[in-house]
Amino acid sequence: MNDNCFAAAVWHGAGDIRIEYRPRTPLKSGQVRVKVSLCGICGSDVHEFLTGPHAIPVGTPHPVSGETAPLVIGHEFTGMIIEASADVDLAPGTRVAVEPEYRCGECAACSRGEYNLCQSMGFAGLMGSGGMAEEAVLPSYMLHPLPDTVTDRQAAVLEPAAVALHALRRGRVRAGDTVAVAGAGPIGLLIAQLARIAGARRVIVSDVSEARLSMARDLGATEMVNAASADLATVANGVDVAFEAVGMQVTLDAALASVRKGGRVVFVGLCGGLVSIDGFDLVNREVEIIASVGYRDVYPDLIGMIASGLFDPSRIVTREVALGNAVREGFGRPTTGGQDIKILINPSVKGALS
């Protein structure tokens, strides 16, 4: 294969992600070409693989990326700049973390600085080509230079960590607070870890997986609840802030029941449909419901926390897989009862490239 192509995991449809070669395109103004070091598989990626499209544009291009399927999947990634357009002040050889949110820069939300609420919001790797590939072309505003004290593995988990920190800030968690987390997937585990770093004196995590609850304990959670046999609300007994980190009615119910009067429930999980809430109970207890989507203005703080040794998001990584094996050993694992929490794809190891 010549230098004008690169290997990538390309979404063509539900159940159809192909490892194939894509043509290298010239850079446009404001763009940077990044050699990808590692790319994580997100739950959103798995949903697109199993039952998509959900977010991936089919037929009508995304208004910012201008792309439509088939496109390169993967939005949790890091790498090194290998080329930049003339109007970009970032040098080749710079290691970068990728904050993959698209923004138009012109709508009311962008004007307020709330770019995660852009009217044309989207993510590289879902609404445009992303990072599960040997290289990626991105707008320069997505890139954050990395110090040598942040490893590639840590940087590859910055995106879900950003979701967690934004949610924590939305929930206004303060030192001394009590916190419940319904769901010990990657986001829930990172919320628990960051809540303890923020000074929460109790962090109660519920899940049906003992392996995930064990990891929650290792990350600093003070109490673990197996939701298959115990009740989060009974153990939590009125926390200050509860986080729903799955996107299911049952976990939302658990979060709502676990919070005290006047407390806050942060809805982070992506629910696929309508949910029901007891409005009478909500008003009577003056419970505040807060939604949290994506992130804004958190990457520099997270990079600083990692560089100082305060925070290590890579502790949730359970496996690294070659790019050529991404479908069988990556996307297929959540459907076969595996105990993996965060799988990273390594594009420099091609594996069984087809």
Rank of each mutant, 00 (worst) to 15 (best):
G43N: 06
G43A: 08
G43L: 04
G43W: 02
S44D: 08
H47W: 06
H47M: 04
E48L: 04
F49H: 11
T51G: 01
T51Y: 10
G52L: 03
H54E: 05
I56V: 15
I56G: 02
I56C: 01
V58H: 03
G59D: 04
T60H: 04
V64G: 06
G66W: 01
E67L: 01
E67A: 03
T68G: 11
T68Y: 00
T68C: 09
T68W: 00
A69F: 00
A69H: 00
A69M: 02
P70H: 08
P70E: 03
L71D: 01
V72D: 09
E76D: 13
F77H: 14
T78G: 07
G79W: 12
M80F: 02
I82A: 02
I82H: 00
I82D: 13
E83Q: 15
E83K: 10
S85G: 11
A86I: 03
D87S: 07
V88S: 07
V88Q: 07
D89E: 13
D89L: 11
A91R: 15
P92K: 10
P92F: 06
T94C: 12
V96L: 11
V96A: 06
A97F: 12
V98C: 13
E99L: 02
P100Y: 05
Y102Q: 14
Y102C: 02
R103K: 14
G105W: 00
E106S: 09
A108V: 09
A109D: 12
C110G: 07
R112Q: 14
R112D: 14
Y115N: 09
N116R: 08
L117W: 03
L117M: 12
C118R: 09
Q119G: 10
S120M: 03
M121Y: 14
G122N: 08
L126D: 00
M127R: 13
G128D: 07
G130V: 10
G130L: 12
